[in-house]
Amino acid sequence: MIVSDLSTAGVSRRLGKGQLFLRTGPFISRIQTSIASIQSGIALLYAGFPVYDDAPFADFHVALERPPNLRRWFRPQVTFKFDGWAPFKPLPLNQAFAMFEWGMNWCVVNHAHRYLVLHAAVVERNGCAMIMPAPPGSGKSTLCAALVSSGWRLLSDELAVISLATAGLVPLPRPVGLKNQSIHVIHQRYPDATIGKAAHDTTKGTVAHMQPPAESIARQQEEARPAWVLFPKYTPGHALELQRYSKAQSLLKLVENAFNFTVLGKQAFDCLGQVIDDSDCFTLEYSSLDEAVSQLNALEIPAPCA
């Protein structure tokens, strides 16, 4: 059963009772919420994901609630709870869906040390994965959305999940977060893309999410080999420029973007060393998405992945 097999009312009812078990990548989350914007967001943006009415075991038990205080009346808020405990402060209610997404990331980052987890987008073609670690504002998510709308498979938009045992990339597809102008850009370029309701005035500006392609969800159990590490940078008016980047520097940057490098210690160092060994490393400066996508489509597959 997938989410879209259920009616919108059916999704809401299950969420209200805390009876919705959603599978994303290797994880099952039991979600409880009565907040309408999250219910409709899940129904729309997670439409293709597997869902269970009752699973004996859930990796994460999460709830999104409106805190029971006076603010509820004049400035409504939302709290994210992990098994009854609120790890962070409430946010304004209009950011509820974004908070759900951030909370789901938090669950993985804090409880999945079986994997090395990086702050990076991961896309794949022909079984070869491209890891794109990048700071906010670098256009990483826009490029990721453009690539997955042009035939690349989405492994993850925010979290690169790497198996310590195989150094393979584990898919964790979820809706792609878009910020500010990129919401409009993606909407214009790909009119068929399904984009959810925008939340304004978040700490990250205006945020909306794009539904991942059906094929990415259908193949969410299928790992990919690391092949490229790409540091993209969007610079308006800049001519396309793809350059080889030092492997040692690339490793240092991956370490900077790793959430649990210090937790895993030597295993993380070995694993990232393997990723860098097997990957070609580049920086990409671009202003035209078309040019960037066709440049990346033309990348040669490195020998270890071929």
Partner: peptide, 11 residues
């Protein structure tokens, strides 16, 4: 201590 070396650069 553990080392990695690529193209003469050492981490």
């Amino acid at each position: 201590l553990h080392w990695r070396e690529w193209e003469g650069e050492v981490v």
